[in-house]
Structure formats: C-alpha cells, structure tokens
Nucleic acid binder design. Structure first.
Lengths: 224, 224
DNA sequence: GTTTACCTTAAGTTTACCTAAAAGTCGCAT
DNA sequence: ATGCGACTTTTAGGTAAACTTAAGGTAAAC
C-alpha cells in the first residue's frame, strides 16, 4: 500500500511519512505542489495526503488537476482552515476526505484505512488465477495441495499481476509500483524476481507461468 | 444516482431525503436499522447515509454487517458523538466518511458528491478499426475470435496507424516515430514489418488490410 | 520492355532476458 | 553486542527471441 504525502511544512510532512511507514505503508514525501502532481501521476499510489496551504499552487488546484487527468486515487485533504466553505470546496475539487489540523494520528490513520479499504476489499483475502491462489493474509502462494511462502517483493509483484491477469506489466511500471518512483533499482532486479517467482510457481506445480514479451514486459499465462 | 438514508429520527431522515431529492438524487428513507440492512442489500444504491445512534442495532453494526456481506456501497456515517474514538471506530467498521450532527447541508451534499463521484467507468484500452481491435494492455491484435500477440515494433506501427486509420503514413514518418529521428534504419525495414503485420492480419482472418501507395506510404483499408 | 519501388523469406546479429551464485542488508534471537 | 537466517540486490555469462539485413522475386509505372 503506497501513499504520497504532499505538504510544504517539511517537518509535518516527514512526521506523517514516518507515521505511515511505522504502520506498514510505503510512503513518498514531497514538499512542493508541483512535485506532488508529478509523483501522483507517475507513481501509482493508493492514497494521497494533500495539504491545502502551499505556495505557488494550493491543494485544491492539485486535486482538480489530478481529477481532470483521470487520476482517481483517493485524496485526503489536510488543512488548517476548518470552516464549512473550504471543506465543501475541497470535496468538490476532487478530495475524498477532509481533515483539519491539528489532528489526532489515530484519526488520520483511520481515514487512510477507510480510503484505501475499498481497493483491498475488492480483492478479498485470496486472489486466484488459473490453478494458483495467493493468500493475502499470510503471503502464501498455493496450487493444489502445495504451497510456499513469498517474500515481500515477490508478493507485491504477484499481487499486482493477479489483479489484472491478462495485462502486460512493463518493468518500469513494476519498479515504480513495488520500489517507488525514486529508486535506483535496475531492470535486472525485476528479472531476478521474476526468476524467483517462476521457481516458486514451478515448486507448487502450477500450470500458471510468467511469460515475458521482449521490450514490453511480463504477464501471467495459464496453460491448461 | 440512488441514495439510502437510514435514521431513526424520522423528521431528520425525511429532511435529508427531501434535501437529496431537491438536489436531483433518488432517495429511499427508512427508520430502522433492520430495514436499512435489507434495503442496502437489495436496492443497488450508490451511497448510504447511516445514523449511528439507533435502537436495537447501531450504525457501526449495520456497516460491519454490510461489509461482511461484500457490500461495497460507500457509507456516510452520521452521528451526534464527535469524539475521535467514535470517528475511528466508524471508519474502521466500514464507513467511508463520518459527519457529526449538527451539520451544514452544504457539507452533507459535498460529502455525498465526493462519495458517489468515483463511479469509475473502466476505460477500454482497446483501439478498433473495421473488424480488428488492438488491446493496449497486452499488445494483442484480434479479430472475431482469433487473436495474436504483437512484437514491440509491430505494435508501435499498428498503434500509430489505428490512431488515424485513413491517413497515409510515409516510411520516413514511420521510421522517425518508431525508431527515432537519428536511426540508420533503412526503408526496407519498414517493408519487412509491414509484411509481418499483414501476415498477422491474415492470421486473425481480418478484412482489414495494409495497402501501400507507391512513393507515398501505407494506410489501412477495410474491405467489407 | 525497362526501371524501380515494393514484397517476402530466410539467414545473420544484437541485445534483452534468464539464472545461478555471490555479496550485501536487515531483523531477530541468543 | 554478536551471529544467524531470510530476504534483497548485484554481478556476470550464457541463451534465444526479436530485430535487422540481405537477396531474389513481383508488380506497377513510364
């Protein structure tokens, strides 16, 4: 679960980022609206925490632009102003929720959970495709009677692919999704993990395989 | 856009219902938690406005039961209690938002708008022309029941042509778009790929063909 | 009839991809 | 602290798929 924090108050932004990380989220933190826009559109986040009061471009405008560009990631707006007019404005600009500063960390976390819940609910707690299933509670891949535990990265990659089993995922997309936008991970890293996953798929005796398309990416395949 | 209002305070519930109707929503209003559950599960709503304090069964439990039954309709919880603990509880029970009474009608409407906004229509990432379609998620060309995967270069060329199906594309243009401006690719290369694409068009049994105009370039053609 | 652009296929070549194995991290328990 | 084990990242060499080139054939234009 990846979250983007956009707030020009550096200390607060960092604090939120750390709070999220302590609670098992992946978090990217940026301090400028411009960067926020860029990250949001390229980073594939599950939620964006967006401050309203920022120099140059305010949170309303960021939200509006994102929505205009068909970006539908849930947005939690954060602000000092707590009058009804600005709440209404925030929500109508595309925010999904609105939280006034100062806030209790518990409430922030609860609202983040609420905003990100839908995504995980649709997925239920077991993803399946062909003859394999991925248990999202214990990070285990199984097929028939055999099963094998997955590491965090292996899990994230397979989880992503199982959500759209027919789609081809480019290495870029996989890197930005699993490692984040500003990581210096090489493409070979993705290749290595694909190799690990293939080994495990073979180990559980599945007929599902990861097929690669040169220059395009990877996708799942079920050979009955 | 259909909304369900569940609140045992009859006058308030009716008021909300009328407010919604004045704002172009369809609204059903019920005054008991049990009815709320039944309506929610059988009524196909876009949003549920749910009071917390109700006799017999409170709003938390209603939300929880709905979520347990895989009902993913957005829930806006309405309550007199406005302490952080109950907000957190509400959100964690499955509510998507939490609004304290008394509230401004403008804010209620804004939150409903926010909750119902994400009626995500899945953008079909498919380009079509005549009897063929090109799936941009898995780089596959299909016609009727048959389909065939494309290589990266084949895909780029066909993608470009499908964006303007009637246009004639010169080899120069194709080279500069697909291989880049400063490539030492020969025109024969384009010819070779056109041959590959024609083979695949034939393979899927399409009536679309790539026709060439001497000295000018290539374009798609659909012979019904 | 000659020219020349275009088509096709098959052979060559590159380079993206694969994998094993080593090196590096991190967390955890002793 | 220290060492162990699991996970992650890097390295490096082999392989084969996709791309490129070449060459002979076909058909359109003049």
């Amino acid at each position: 679960m990846k979250i983007l924090v956009v707030d020009d108050e550096v200390k607060l932004a960092d604090a939120i980022g750390e709070l999220l990380i302590r609670n098992k989220y992946m978090a990217d933190v940026v301090y400028e609206a411009q960067d926020g826009l860029y990250y949001a559109e390229h980073g594939d986040y599950d939620c964006i925490i967006l401050d309203v009061m920022m120099p140059q471009m305010d949170g309303f405008e960021v939200a509006e632009r994102l929505r205009k560009n068909k970006c539908s990631v849930p947005i939690l707006m954060l602000t000092a102003k707590d009058d009804i007019a600005s709440r209404v404005k925030g929500l109508d600009c595309g925010a999904d929720d609105y939280l006034a500063k100062p806030f209790a960390v518990e409430e922030l976390l609860a609202r983040v959970r609420a905003l990100t819940r839908r995504k995980t609910e649709i997925v239920s707690d077991v993803l399946t495709y062909g003859d394999i299933s991925l248990n999202t509670n214990n990070y285990t891949l199984s097929s028939g009677t055999k099963s094998v535990p997955l590491g965090a990265k292996e899990y994230e990659i397979l989880h992503m692919m199982l959500n759209n089993p027919t789609q081809v995922f480019s290495k870029d997309v996989i890197i930005s999704r699993v490692w984040g936008l500003d990581s210096d991970i090489t493409e070979n890293n993705v290749e290595a993990y694909m190799s690990f996953l293939r080994k495990k798929l073979f180990f559980v005796g599945s007929k599902v395989s990861i097929s690669s398309k040169r220059l395009l990416g990877y996708h799942l395949e079920y050979n009955q």
